[in-house]
Design a protein around this nucleic acid. Structure first.
Lengths: 226, 226
DNA sequence: CGCCTAGTTGAGGTAAGTCAATTCACGTGG
DNA sequence: CCACGTGAATTGACTTACCTCAACTAGGCG
């Protein structure tokens, strides 16, 4: 979390809640009163299609907002599911709106958070639309690595990752079988190893080059507040 | 444009500008002082990959913001190119921030616009990740139809569409050759015809069913202001 | 010990890509 | 008014990346 985000957090009424892995926090179509800030654990936001297929839009890690867009649009266009058991603090719409009115700087900060979120979705879109399976996977893991590193949960050497290959498949738009093959490929190329819930990166720079990973969309720290 | 958006517009300093088709307004990596509101014509926002491939993230039609995210993030993660000659009105960051401070309702409205934008990108992501070419194309055209209808530039019967098959290909993540085949398929199924810059929809309801099109993410009109 | 879920691998199928040729629409200059 | 050039659309033949189905392995846990 950035300073800005912390200040938002501090100004709001806090109520801690916990949710267990696999049970949806938010359902597609539901209308929401509250958003959450994820304190520990991982979650994912996804959409289901009529034919039962699933597309995971993004994974959330500690420090991220959950369901902020749902609150603003007053209806959730997606579902949110905890990947692991999670802890969150609740943020009520009314509080948020009041905070906006009182301190425009807070509004700006949240605004920035939403925009950064959108930038990530856009990058994800580009990956699925135009990168082949291996590049896409590499890019996906590098983004996770960068985000986790920002909150002290990872480094260029690797990170703990509770995702199954099925979850990854639904995120990168591949079949789980192909995810497995691609991970093997990346391992055999000496780029990284994903085993037992750990991603170990053997060749960070090579991976960045291979995936055409451009970190700039992530590491802007609330520049409007400068 | 919604009432809310119109009020934002009215409160800001307006400077009209025009740009010719094909010449970028905003370059990837550029840092921006101003966003724009598109008054006439079509534009598209896209990202280029290192290998020269392009992914179009979204098309903008009259009433849409251009480059709002770039302004908030203080750097553009994407480029924007007019598809046709366009007219825009310029919105300066400073004005926008001031407007935010004075009237939180305006901030909320813009906030809503950004969230709606993100919802469209998410839907686009789902399409590319999990729908086959024909469904994706159908969904894409239905979304355009719905958005254009909101601003009076189209109806369920069809709309004027200045996009080439190349542009569509870069948007839906297909090759232009395949776009052509898919359009033929949709025509032969009696769903729609795209010819000479016009999309004519022959079977709207059938198309909606075929594409699993769920309009709700688009037709929320600034619910937080109610 | 046996079940259950996650991961791994092989074989064969298919949706979409690439390459290439042809047609079409349209603007421009002779 | 027509020849020409150019960019878009169309179609065919062939290739390929990824999918599906299916079998098998490896841990974790009651």
């Amino acid at each position: 979390m950035t300073d800005a985000e912390l200040r938002v957090l501090d100004s709001l009424d806090k109520r801690r809640r916990t949710f267990v892995a696999g049970r949806d926090l938010v359902h597609q179509g539901q209308s929401n009163q509250a958003a959450y800030i994820l304190m520990s654990g991982w979650a994912c936001s996804y959409k289901l299609l009529a034919d039962g297929q699933r597309q995971i839009v993004d994974f959330q890690i500690p420090g991220d907002f959950l369901g902020l867009r749902s609150v603003v649009l007053h209806i959730s266009d997606h579902s949110i599911e905890p990947v692991t058991d999670i802890e969150v603090t609740e943020v009520h719409v009314s509080d948020l709106m009041e905070a906006f009115a009182q301190t425009p700087r807070l509004a700006t900060a949240v605004f920035w958070a939403v925009s950064r979120d959108e930038a990530m979705v856009v990058e994800h879109l580009v990956g699925i639309g135009r990168r082949d399976a291996a590049e896409r996977m590499a890019h996906f893991l590098l983004e996770l690595c960068a985000r986790l590193s920002l909150v002290g949960l990872g480094s260029k050497a690797g990170f703990a990752c509770p995702l199954t290959q099925y979850l990854i498949a639904d995120a990168v738009g591949l079949s789980s079988v192909h995810v497995n093959r691609v991970l093997r490929h990346l391992r055999e190329q000496g780029f990284l190893t994903f085993r037992n819930g750990f991603v170990t990166i053997h060749d960070y720079d090579g991976l960045v080059r291979f995936a055409d990973f451009e970190i700039s969309y992530l590491d802007q720290i609330g520049p409007l507040l400068r």
